[in-house]
């Protein structure tokens, strides 16, 4: 602590070391965890939603098939950003409205009053007096849901295509051996589907990584927020004044994202190799590889 006691008296490397370890910078470093948390939570949810969507579209039950088709085509037809802005607000209001109806049935005043949206304080999500991190956490949950809906639809498309790409002969063979439809799906169709889905899913993962700065758009203090905030020029009101350093901060983010996507690419190459080793009619796979 002594080391950084008076920032105005130190300079050079010592100044930089102190500057880069201020509590504000620590918040910046922590915000990288937000990105990882988003990826770690969203990815499995996206896979699940995508799987559900793809299976729904393949279903022999017409309403379910329509639902799957509507879901995927709706998300595909609307710009992502619109969804990212719409979903959290709509969801937030829906939750508060529902809570309002349940918790304050005695309030008869309209919730939508002119341009205001007013629910009773018990219905607030989170509650007014909740800690700051709860508010941030709720915003994060809404963001995860928005990401999952949008990317779930993309994944549904990929998985739907992959399920269709599995050669019919492989499935027919299972039926010829007395497998039930369910067994055929679980033991043959799905395991073989991954090979065809992998290139598309790896692509989707890269897009997901690159979409994480949208968190900033949703009001979450992510790495972009902190880079911009820390990088902006600082006058004497701050302990560590400096000119406009946004370039360096954004350069840092650039390197971070490059590293992340490069590393992901490596992992997917490995997975691809593993799947290809145990693979299928090689001639069926070739066009997909070439198209990548």
């Amino acid at each position: 602590m002594e080391f950084c006691a008076d920032p105005s008296l130190i300079s050079g490397w010592r100044w930089l070391a102190c500057y880069l370890t201020t509590p504000k910078h620590q918040l910046f470093y922590l915000s990288f965890l937000t990105v990882f948390a988003l990826l770690a939570i969203t990815a499995p949810v996206v896979l699940l939603m995508g799987f559900a969507g793809a299976v729904a579209r393949l279903s022999s039950f017409a309403p379910l098939r329509w639902l799957g088709t509507i879901y995927t085509s709706m998300v595909r037809g609307v710009p992502d950003v619109i969804f990212f802005l719409f979903v959290p607000i709509a969801l937030d209001q829906l939750v508060e409205l529902t809570r309002h109806k349940i918790k304050c049935p005695q309030v008869t005043d309209a919730v939508y009053r002119g341009n205001e949206f007013i629910v009773c304080s018990e219905a607030k999500m989170p509650l007014q007096d909740a800690a700051a991190w709860v508010h941030q956490g709720w915003g994060f949950v809404l963001a995860v849901i928005a990401f999952s809906i949008v990317f779930g639809a993309f994944a549904a498309n990929t998985l739907f295509g992959a399920l269709n790409a599995v050669p019919e002969k492989q499935l027919e063979t299972a039926r010829a051996f007395g497998f039930t439809e369910r067994q055929t799906f679980r033991k043959i169709h799905v395991p073989q589907m991954w090979t065809y889905a992998l290139p598309g899913l790896s692509n989707l993962w890269m897009i997901l990584i690159k979409a994480t700065p949208l968190l900033f758009l949703l009001g979450i203090e992510d790495i972009v927020y902190w880079a911009r905030e820390l990088g902006g020029s600082k006058t004497g009101y701050f302990a560590y004044p400096h000119p406009d350093w946004r370039l360096w901060y954004f350069l840092g983010l650039l390197v971070f994202y490059l590293l992340l996507t490069w590393l992901s690419g490596k992992v997917f190459d490995r997975l691809n190799q593993r799947f290809n080793r145990q693979n299928i009619d090689q001639q069926v796979l070739k066009p997909i590889e070439a198209g990548r």
Binding site: K169, Q170, E172, T173, A174, R175, A176, F177, G178, T180, I188, P191, Q192, T195, Q278, N279, I280, D281
Partner: peptide, 20 residues
């Protein structure tokens, strides 16, 4: 299914399950 388990088929293109 009972019939199929009793009548095993061998296909022209082998149709071994590729992922196994």
């Amino acid at each position: 299914r009972r019939m199929r388990t009793n009548l095993s088929m061998v296909f022209q293109q082998f149709n071994l399950w590729a992922h196994m």
